[in-house]
Amino acid sequence: MKTHTLLILALLSIALACNDDETSPQTTSSSTITFNMEHTWDDTTVSSNDFNTLKFANANGETMSITKLRYLISNITFTPTNGETITLEGYELIDLTNNTNLNTGILGRIPNGTYSNISFTFGFNNADNYNNNYQDLNSALWNVPGLLGGGYHYMQLEGKFIDNTTTEKGYAYHAIRAVDNSGDTQKFEDTFFTVNLGSTTISKDTTFNIAMNIAEWFKTPNTWDLNVLNTMLMPNFDAQLLMFQNGQNVFNLKSID
């Protein structure tokens, strides 16, 4: 099985001209940071070669396939033990379907030193989601309809499953900012979330190997029933909250090289 990895070389686009800050311990050199995004179904590695086959069993017992997986991460943040937090500008639309990262070319370096936490945002925070018009994301048809508040998707996970009548059906597990359109005014609830990778010391070019366990989207804390929740989930306020809750357990840091 071919192991799919997506390399994200993170750009330090903020000014590194803070070398005159004599209180900062990390001023002498810097290193390239790489995010290597891997994907699993529990303990089994998943690549696009595994797509289009009913080979996965979710927590609710349905057999299912994956036909598409795209998701957005942003706000890659380095929190030093001493000094100012560094948040990288930009974002990555990771497309496992086509084995591409559509926002390639993000390259840069991070000052060497000890960081108490490194994190990223799954999706966009509200400022990033609504205040910018991203040409590359528009080109990738990543938009959320204005009826649902606009902005952009956080994830598109699609495939087929065998329902409780043994019929093959499609599902479209699309994550966006939750919106309730049932009242006179739209009610929103944030569903982006921060993924904390923990502390580390950076003294050389470093790769963070991060895994998305796709099975977790259907497992914890909410056992997802595809018979009930399969399509038309974008306007489903409650479904979006369930996705948000399950998303908390999806990512984990496997190793640092």
Binding site: L141, N143, G146
Partner: peptide
Amino acid sequence: FDVFMDEARGDCFHCHGSDKN
């Protein structure tokens, strides 16, 4: 246009884009 953009009705936008494309 609303029908086109409504996932519960037309849901055309996922393959055919929107006013942003």
